[in-house]
Amino acid sequence: MKRREFLQSSALSVIMGGVVAAEAAVPVTLPDYNMPEEFLPREVRLRNDLEPFEIHVDPGQYALYWTLPDKKAIRYAVGIGRTQLYEHGEFFVGAKKEWPSWTPTPEMIERDPQSYARFADGMPGGINNPLGSRGLYLFTPSRGDTFLRIHGTNDPETIGRRVSNGCARLINDQMIDLYDRVPLKTRVVLYPIGRG
């Protein structure tokens, strides 16, 4: 299925698990990111019998899977957190935001003040915002918001690489598609880097 066909067919279904996709707060026209075929979303068969309607991120494959019934899933290509910043574990989607604002964490500012200190008061949502078109905020019962995100990006060069401060990122149009499928409280599993 071609990217446009995939996105058009998924756009027809804006209600999934009781969540209705709202209009974007920042109306923009997304560019055509011209992604290679291997980076386009596609339906795949799973070897493992995973519960449907969960997110599973395999950092070794730079892949995010939205699981479906009957051992199927939609596979999205992602960029992930750099090795020392990536955090594996089990989470849930505690918040969803369209065109989210972004504020670097104190740890990010401390690690790289030249890049992040100027954004200490935050950056409004928009096409050039590091969180892109949509954000899924990852929580745990014990910590609440972990400051880990699954989010959009307008930089195709970051897909299939370890580039971010611990998050998983999808190209903006693919992130919109995923966001529309994922209800609050969805289980998210981030697998360890280098698992066998």
Rank of each mutant, 00 (worst) to 15 (best):
V20D: 06
F119T: 01
K71G: 08
V189K: 15
F53A: 12
P69Q: 03
R134F: 01
D173T: 10
T103M: 07
D112A: 01
A21M: 01
T186G: 08
I15P: 01
R3L: 00
P31K: 06
R187G: 10
L148T: 11
T158M: 12
G135Q: 07
L184M: 12
G125H: 04
T103A: 06
V44L: 12
D177M: 01
E51T: 15
P104H: 01
I127W: 00
Q8L: 07
P41R: 10
T67F: 02
K2R: 08
Y76P: 04
Y76S: 03
N34S: 12
F6S: 03
N172Y: 03
L50K: 15
A21S: 02
L85M: 04
D70W: 03
E107K: 11
F147D: 10
R187C: 09
K2P: 11
V188I: 14
R195H: 13
R161V: 09
H56M: 14
E23P: 05
M123W: 01
E110Q: 13
G122P: 06
N172E: 05
G144M: 09
I74D: 04
A120C: 02
A25H: 06
L30V: 07
S9N: 04
T103Q: 13
V93K: 04
L46S: 13
K2T: 09
P130W: 06
T105F: 06
S9E: 02
G89R: 15
E90R: 15
G144K: 11
S133H: 02
T153M: 11
N48A: 15
R118C: 02
P141T: 13
F147W: 13
N128H: 08
I109H: 01
F6Y: 04
V20R: 07
D58L: 14
T67C: 02
Y65N: 05
Q84P: 07
W102R: 03
L12S: 06
T103W: 07
S115R: 08
L178D: 08
V188E: 12
D173Y: 04
P156Y: 07
V163N: 12
A95Y: 13
I80A: 10
